[in-house]
């Protein structure tokens, strides 16, 4: 007979129970599927947009000739040169080898997007993305870091358990699982840490408090998309934008969780990233951050019936299909 842990009303037992629900209450993989499809789509569009540069960026007679690419970036990690060395005994030349790597990356992303052999596709996409990122280190920026992080998660988290060919063709279960919940929580907390770290780092600079930084960033040749010099005549507006950025990033890890503030914070952070995409021209960075936020905090992981009760504000545990008797559902998404 199972020990009556759930009837234990001590604070410690209550805390354990709440933590258990928060981390392991069975969840659907819908947010994970949204992440999978969104991430794969953004990376596929990015690949299509930059495909003309592919050989220039990665071949030995491209922008980084000879072994120059190895002089930049981390020493650890795969590079296209390593893969080409493996392929050369098969008689595959550099150009053909690079095209094969690029094609394999695209195929892996397509399979990931459709959710076909999802884990294998995620592993291949992650490995090739890491390889390409390492091989042209001077070209990388924030979008690559986030893509690398979440492709890695896609290998381990059940991102293929909803809206996937694995479900429709191969019969993978769509049933809510504890694995989906803990995977979702892990990625949510990673996103919170990243925003908090970014916000705290910014807050150490006076330029983020007086509004100078946004004026400066908008005037840099690398980011200038529009003539924003008029902002100098409205310094309060620049300061407000900087302070709002600090508040959104530092407050994210707190205000994205409660239902009352989640929508507001989600809207604010989406606005921030759309602003970055439009005004600084960092389109893919802005879009990938929107995808991550919408998938991880904008889509309910609760089963359909439960979701309706969840958003209707039903009492905890009431008409729930995923909770056990005496067990509360997680109030956070």
């Amino acid at each position: 007979m199972e020990a009556p842990i759930l009837d234990d009303s001590s604070p410690r037992a209550g805390a354990c129970r709440a933590l258990d629900v928060f981390l392991f209450a069975p969840a659907t993989a819908r947010p994970l599927a949204a992440l999978r499809i969104g991430l794969a789509s953004v990376l596929l569009v990015q690949a299509a947009v930059v495909h003309a540069e592919f050989l220039d960026w990665f071949s030995r007679d491209g922008l980084f000739q000879g072994n120059l690419a190895r002089a930049f970036g981390p020493l650890f990690g795969p590079r296209t040169g390593d893969l080409l060395a493996w392929l050369s005994p098969l008689g595959v030349g550099e150009v053909a080898g690079l095209r094969a790597i690029g094609a394999a990356y695209v195929v892996a992303l397509v399979m990931l997007g459709f959710g076909l052999f999802t884990r294998a596709a995620a592993a291949l996409a992650w490995f090739l993305h890491w390889t390409l990122m390492n091989s042209a280190d001077p070209l990388r920026y924030g979008v690559d870091l986030y893509a690398h992080i979440f492709l890695f998660y896609a290998i381990w988290v059940p991102v293929g358990r909803a809206a996937s060919l694995d479900v429709f063709l191969l019969g993978a279960s769509r049933a809510p699982t504890a694995g989906a919940r803990i995977g979702l929580r892990l990625m949510q907390m990673h996103l919170c840490i990243s925003y908090f770290a970014s916000g705290v780092e910014k807050a150490a600079f006076i330029d983020w408090w007086n509004g100078e930084l946004i004026f400066r960033a908008l005037s840099f040749p690398g980011y200038r998309r529009f003539d924003m010099s008029w902002l100098a005549h409205h310094p309060a507006l620049a300061q407000l934008a900087c302070l709002a950025t600090l508040a959104i990033e530092i407050g994210y890890c707190v205000f994205i969780w409660p239902r009352r503030t989640r929508r507001l914070w989600l809207a604010a952070v989406l606005g921030l990233h759309l602003g970055i995409a439009i005004f600084l021209g960092l389109h893919f960075f802005g879009i990938i951050m929107c995808v991550l936020n919408i998938a991880l905090f904008g889509i309910s992981p609760e089963p359909r019936g439960d979701q309706a009760a969840f958003f209707a504000g039903a009492a905890p545990g009431e008409s729930s299909t995923l909770t056990q008797p005496g067990m509360r559902r997680s109030k956070a998404l």
Binding site: Q46, V49, V50, A52, E53, D56, W57, L63, F72, P138, L139, R140, Y141, G222, G281, L282, H283, F284
Partner: peptide, 20 residues
Amino acid sequence: SLGTGASHEAEIRVAHIADA
């Protein structure tokens, strides 16, 4: 430009070479 001029994304990336 060091890029082929085919996309803004490519131009952003090659601009980062300056940091090297």
